[in-house]
């Protein structure tokens, strides 16, 4: 062991200008993917709790497939596999966003299902007994309450998806890890650079945590 090894702070700080350009990519892939994943999740989550069996099972299949396979395989499939089907290459950024979208969509649909099902039966019954239609009961009574309960698990999923984007260095999209790898290839300062990369992920996820905590607090204040 080389006990004389020193953590080189100047190397760490020196990497910052090279890493920073990765942040917008990381944010773009994760939040772009999550935004689409949110709608996918609502769509399949609601299908999953439909009263009609033939609407439920496509949602079950979707969730099982995308929750049951690694996101790394998903993004490789989209980036390298799909072009063979389509006959034209797919942009790495698009592939990354798509992978986050379909992957987080599967988890979010379970969050949506859980949130809606957690609302007491009596809420729906009270709505119907007042003459509201099923759609109105859902829109004005069930969904607003379910959504509040979904905020913490959605935040959790957001943080997971942000970290998942680190795997997308394999398809060459210039997110944080990729930027770090390129830099290390010329400087050989892996310890310092990955340390800084980790700090940047922490900065992003922490900021998100703080925002979510505020949202939750505001949500609860109404009750």
């Amino acid at each position: 062991m080389d006990v004389n090894f020193q953590f080189d702070w100047s190397a760490a700080f020196g990497s910052i200008p090279y890493l920073l350009p990765g942040i917008p990519w990381t944010l773009l892939i994760s939040f772009g993917g999550l935004a689409i994943g949110f709608f996918i999740g609502i769509f399949f989550g609601l299908l999953r709790i439909s009263r009609l069996r033939w609407l439920r099972w496509p949602a079950i299949v979707y969730v099982e497939v995308f929750r049951g396979t690694p996101i790394l395989v998903q993004v490789l499939f989209i980036f390298y596999g799909l072009p063979q089907l389509l006959g034209s290459p797919i942009n790495a950024l698009v592939a990354g966003i798509a992978a986050i979208a379909v992957n987080s969509g599967a988890y979010i649909s379970e969050i949506v299902r859980g949130g809606v099902q957690s609302i007491e039966r009596g809420q729906g019954e009270a709505s119907l007994s007042l003459g509201l239609s099923r759609t109105q009961a859902f829109r004005y009574v069930i969904w607003p309450q379910a959504f509040r309960r979904m905020i913490p698990p959605l935040g959790n999923q957001g943080i997971i998806s942000i970290k998942d984007t680190s795997l997308f260095s394999v398809i060459g999209v210039g997110e944080l890890v990729r930027q770090g790898q390129i830099y290390i290839a010329t400087t050989f300062t892996a310890l310092e650079v990955y340390f800084m990369v980790a700090l940047m992920y922490l900065a992003i996820t922490w900021t998100l945590s703080i925002i979510l905590r505020q949202l939750e607090r505001r949500g609860l204040a109404g009750q």
Binding site: E120, G122, E125, A126, S129, L130, Q145, Q223
Partner: peptide, 20 residues
């Protein structure tokens, strides 16, 4: 059903007020 529910009110044991 819809017509009846607009004409018939119900009060439940657990109140079932809308908490939000």
């Amino acid at each position: 059903l819809q017509t009846i529910r607009t004409e018939v009110g119900m009060v439940f044991q657990q109140f079932n007020l809308f908490p939000h």
